[in-house]
Design a protein around this nucleic acid. Structure first.
Lengths: 298, 298
DNA sequence: GAGATTTGTTGAATTCTATTCATGGCCCAG
DNA sequence: CTGGGCCATGAATAGAATTCAACAAATCTC
């Protein structure tokens, strides 16, 4: 009825803006340039005759009107997603399978909630984890043993397999609060020479720190293993060495001051995660839903 | 997140489709050609991989998927309208006035609910009825005495006043169920010669039947007045004459079989209602809201 | 039952709108 | 004051949605 220029696209923008706190990051979340969002927002603001957010404030602050639209966006987007899921289930019969291969330990932190959401939304989809820490996850997808592999580096394109980027994350150097390094603004590769690197029991080639930070600098620290994240942090906290973990897996500990997280290098070390999936499944609604959940929740 | 082609525009289409039961009428409700809607719907159907409605059924029937989307549309559109109202009220202070001039008695049937809705959504807007049955309503708007005039014929454009079309309606010939005319498929002007035309106590020039049906045929029946719609129907039911009223004002009586409604002429007689409003108010959110309410509720 | 009318569909053309691109301004850090 | 991060702006492009015009199906009428 009311012909307002408001469209769902705008609501996605608003939601992304609220989530990311920055126009630039919101833009990459909805796969457009920041410019596009700037135009969108300007159009909305002139239409409503009011600003939607305060510019020039680092964690972007929304005005009352902006806030209201974000609330609307949350309602509308979740209602829409729900409706579309239902329809997709009627159409496809709701069945399917999703066997997931992961090569990184920490991934379970975000993978579990996403799997829970999938189980809830798509009860008829068979959900499995493929134990594939040793093998090349990509090969599992190619071989038809897995339906989704989480991988660190964008691999070469292979026929029948599509690769989608999931999200970008920062891996932090983790040091004890009593370590002198805790006072540094960021860590250098050289800082690792004197200490023990505490990590999961996997090949060095699998560790972000080693591949993208220490190896390029020619540094090869002593290593010590632990199976669980808490165990690693325990060792770090008691001064037995330093670790390097994705930010998401340690935020609760950082907040409690149990350990301290430092950027690796002046720019920080950020890596990207990808999903490899068989082309035949890449369009399936439950697959899209799952990937969107991962992207949104991270 | 999910990049579905579904947009609010589509939801408006779906809602209009469900309301009107016909693609053509839905199209004019959202101010596009039927072709556009056909394209829209086809796109949605191929996206969801399922038909949304059954074609070739007179009151257009929705499939399960279509029904679900209509439900979604209702939710989303009302949530959106609500949010936009709130924002508009913050921006404008919510105040304003709306003095309405009406020249037709029956209009109150749909005007009252619309006014109630406005009072609820915009408590700060002063709502008034301008007693202007005698004067030219258009002049009341031009003179700044009224903010909205409901009129029957699209008047010549005047500076500072905009005219918007509200909706189209059919005026039916109303006859007693025991009248021989009740068996006819439709009424002819000549049918009025033998009987008394029962109507509101207004000038003949104001009556749709006279102007668009009887006068062109040179027929000038006897008249009898009644102030209220029920009184007119009472007289008709007891065989004292026939009337001509908009369909919306008599549907409850038709359903109960109290009287019978017949199209006037083989094509029926359909008139259009317009709103004249000062240009300065035509963009005001409460005005848009009011007009949309009228259009949607009719 | 044949023609006419209403109603919806289709593909191509058009028009419109959103996005991108390239540039410039602003603010904070060093 | 200078450089980089971040957003804004205007023109150009690319992409989509709408319209147009012609057609198909179904219904109504005679």
């Amino acid at each position: 009825m009311a012909q307002s220029p408001l469209e769902i696209r705008h609501l996605q923008t608003l939601a992304a803006l609220a989530d990311t706190g920055s126009l630039g990051r919101a833009a990459e979340r909805v796969f457009v340039t920041p410019s596009a969002l700037s135009h969108q927002l300007k159009a909305l603001e002139t239409h409503y005759g009011a600003p939607l957010f305060e510019r020039n404030t680092k964690p972007l602050r929304l005005t009352q009107a902006g806030q209201r639209l974000v609330t609307l966006a949350r309602e509308v987007l979740s209602a829409t997603a729900q409706a579309e899921r239902e329809i997709a289930q009627w159409v496809s019969g709701g069945s399917g399978q999703l066997r997931i291969a992961v090569e990184c330990h920490t991934c379970f932190d975000w993978l579990m909630p996403a799997m829970d959401a999938l189980r809830e939304h798509w009860p008829e989809v068979e959900l499995d984890l493929v134990s594939g820490f040793q093998a090349e996850p990509m090969a599992l997808v190619e071989g038809g043993v897995a339906d989704l592999a989480v991988i660190h580096d964008r691999p070469a394109a292979r026929p029948g397999v599509v690769v989608e980027t999931l999200f970008r994350y920062e891996t932090l150097g983790i040091v004890s609060p009593r370590d002198p390094l805790a006072a540094r603004p960021h860590l250098q590769p050289a800082d690792f020479t004197e200490r023990t690197l505490i990590s999961y029991p996997v090949d060095e080639a699998m560790l972000d720190v080693v591949r993208h930070f220490l190896a390029p600098a020619g540094i090869k620290p002593k290593r010590r293993d632990a199976e669980l994240t808490v165990a690693i942090l325990q060792l770090v906290a008691s001064g037995r060495g330093i670790a390097a973990l994705p930010r998401w897996s340690v935020t609760p500990y950082l907040e409690r001051g149990y350990v301290v997280g430092k950027p690796l290098g002046p720019e920080g070390l950020s890596c990207e995660l990808y999903a490899a999936i068989p082309e035949s499944l890449s369009g399936k609604p439950y697959m899209r839903d799952f990937i969107d959940t991962i992207r949104g929740g991270a």
